[in-house]
Nucleic acid binder design. Structure first.
Lengths: 248, 248
DNA sequence: CGACTTCTTGAACCGAGTCAAGAAGGGTGG
DNA sequence: CCACCCTTCTTGACTCGGTTCAAGAAGTCG
């Protein structure tokens, strides 16, 4: 990339060197774009004042008034519900993900965000201000936020294709791979295993399937040696074959 | 809105006064945010050098090299295909829509764009430059582009919910209403009728349904007096009832 | 340990897909 | 302007993936 010299001009911590002292949540953010030490410090400071909420808590009620928040631990999701009570999950928020940053994703941020597990999160208003004012000293942060938004949109498109054109089996396989990839990016995958603390009911609301069918689909994946589930953790023993199943 | 005085400081043409001399395509764009006369002129000038392509032509091959284009007439769509040939349409592009403007939507712009009818479109590089440099004299244009991107994302989310949670009947109803609303925004709906020049096959690729089922669903809507189709035009005789059917 | 949530399995049902074949349009060349 | 061809629409019959209903087993948390 053509910005190499800029990177060199301002020394940046990154990778393993910093990872040791870094809570998992911050690894994701800093993996999206190179951050200066100062930027990283800003994020870490905002993460200090974290709040814990229980499963089911509403992290963001939806609508236009959005308090930016950074997820530090646990899973949350963006939800849309139909008048008759059916729910569709638009996407999952994992440690390191944020809401209310990036201006681009406003329609997404209009959907309520609900905690799927116990969730630790912090007010990220300070970061929103910094990103918003667009000062060049905080380029890295702005770029990280933008990249995060792009990745989320990308996942949204993938999800659209899956819901429109793929079978339950394919969908589930693809979703598992995608989710693993998200954790992998943050360096949180250990021998193909990653956290999966959500109920099958919830997974169904994301994949557009009934609980019963999610269960059967997961069983099938297990039977075929493509998936192992132990309390709150998933392992994908054969990612390549799973990718074939997922198609695309 | 708090910007009223700014609007007054720079006289802007808008609404019927300008509509008379305005090709349909440009109405949509100028309906998204107030444009100065100069901005409007820029758009109009870029629309002068339009190119016509036939049904099936590729307006944008996909990937990262994007030549910004403004659709002036006809329908196009963004497409994703699976390795086995199944296709999912991510969204339709109507006159007044553009690709390759707004930086936010990059993942969307990575999907190929294909003409569904004869399409007139113009190179919009000049606009992309103007929007990109972010000068305050062209605020209006930048805002219009941003609004367009937000609306598109909003539609994407709606579509996601439909594919995940709604029946063929509901989906189709909702899509018809949404499409009518798009034309309505550009002032192109005459007594509830709007252009609908695509095949049922294509509609199926958007709604995640087989041709056969699209056909049956449309029949049902017609039987129930919710839809009238005449060559290339759709009419929704009872939008309220249709909205109830669409749910949400 | 007890209460509640989550997972699992079976059986019946149904929305939507597939296959097939005929009818209706719509564009093109003679 | 008509005849022809090819695309698009339409309909019927059958199949199948996924839902629903129901009920029991296994976890999980206080």
């Amino acid at each position: 990339m053509s910005l190499t010299h800029v990177t060199e001009a301002r020394p940046r911590l990154s990778g393993p060197a910093r990872a040791a002292a870094t809570p998992p949540a911050l690894r994701l953010l800093s993996g999206l774009a190179p951050l200066t030490g100062a930027e990283f410090e800003l994020v870490r400071r905002c993460a200090l004042r974290s709040e814990r909420v229980q499963t089911g808590a509403v992290l963001h009620p939806g609508g236009d008034k959005i308090v930016p928040r950074l997820i530090l631990a646990g899973w949350a999701c963006r939800v849309r519900e139909l008048p008759d009570g059916r729910r569709q999950i638009l996407g999952f928020l994992l440690p390191g993900d944020a809401i209310g940053l990036g201006a681009c994703a406003r329609p997404l941020d209009r959907a309520p965000v609900v905690a799927l597990t116990r969730v630790d999160s912090a007010d990220a208003s300070s970061l929103a201000v910094i990103v918003g004012e667009g000062r060049s000293a905080h380029q890295g942060l702005a770029r990280a936020v933008e990249t995060a938004a792009e990745l989320e949109l990308e996942r949204l498109l993938n999800q659209l294709v899956r819901l429109g054109r793929q079978s339950a089996y394919e969908r589930t396989a693809a979703w598992l791979l995608e989710t693993r990839a998200r954790f992998a990016r943050a360096g949180l995958v250990e021998n193909d295993a990653f956290p999966l603390p959500i109920t099958q009911e919830t997974l169904g609301e994301a994949l557009g399937l009934s609980v019963v069918h999610v269960n059967r689909t997961l069983q099938q994946l297990r039977r075929e040696g493509l998936l192992e589930l132990r309390t709150g953790k998933a392992r994908l023993p054969d990612p390549d074959r799973l990718a074939e199943v997922a198609g695309a």
